[in-house]
């Protein structure tokens, strides 16, 4: 255990100027947090659709990892652990919000008849993603932002790889109808 002002070396954006007792493990955690927080927040933002919800999700995730830090023996795997914790935390949030059996959406949300000009194309895509049911949105984010394989996504979300594939496929098909790409328009 060392006593240091936790502004040192900018670790984990530890900006309090007061000195607190910080263990070596906490320093290690702060280093890791500093390096990974940005990526976690970006993924959380895509999953939740809002900055505040993303911060809440990342805070819950980082807290969980902090509490488990001593038993994460293999530091090489901590990033994967963090991603899993983030997704698990997100899953628990959407599940507790509606304690009923989850039903995979075969019918995508009706976003009305938005005019999707090329200038607003990405905004239309974002609106579409935000309108997806939570798990289907998670599939899309993990597949097309995190670039995870179908098997990895299935593992993270606790669903079959076939379900991942069908959910992504349905979303893409609906997106093509809703937001034609430039290539299709030509």
């Amino acid at each position: 255990m060392t006593t240091q002002g936790v502004r040192m070396r900018g670790r984990g954006r530890v900006e309090r100027s007061v000195s607190v007792a910080v263990s070596d493990a906490e320093l290690e955690f702060a280093d890791w947090m500093s390096a990974r927080q940005g990526a976690l927040v970006r993924t959380a933002y895509l999953l939740t659709g809002s900055q505040q919800a993303a911060e809440d999700l990342v805070q819950a995730t980082l807290t969980k990892i902090y509490l488990a830090w001593d038993r994460i023996a293999d530091r090489q795997h901590v990033d994967a652990y963090a991603r899993r914790a983030l997704v698990n935390e997100h899953r628990s949030t959407w599940r507790s919000a509606s304690r009923r059996p989850e039903v995979l959406s075969a019918v995508l949300p009706d976003r009305g008849h938005e005019q999707t000009s090329y200038d607003g194309e990405r905004e239309a895509v974002w609106q579409f993603v935000q309108g997806l049911p939570p798990r289907q949105r998670a599939v899309i984010v993990l597949r097309y932002y995190e670039d995870l394989s179908e098997a990895e996504i299935a593992d993270l979300l606790g669903i079959s790889a076939g379900t991942v594939k069908s959910q992504a496929s349905r979303a893409l098909a609906a997106l093509r109808e809703r937001v034609p790409t430039r290539e299709e328009e030509r």
């Binding site: 970006r42 911060e55 805070q59 895509v125 093509r176 290539e183």
Partner: peptide, 28 residues
């Protein structure tokens, strides 16, 4: 399909960059 996937990827990357981190070690 490739066009739609690319559009989705680029949109998600662009949107993700709107997020900003603000948590401190003390928060955690």
């Amino acid at each position: 399909q490739r066009g739609t996937e690319d559009l989705l990827r680029s949109t998600l990357r662009e949107k993700a960059d709107e997020a900003h981190d603000g948590l401190t070690f003390a928060d955690i």
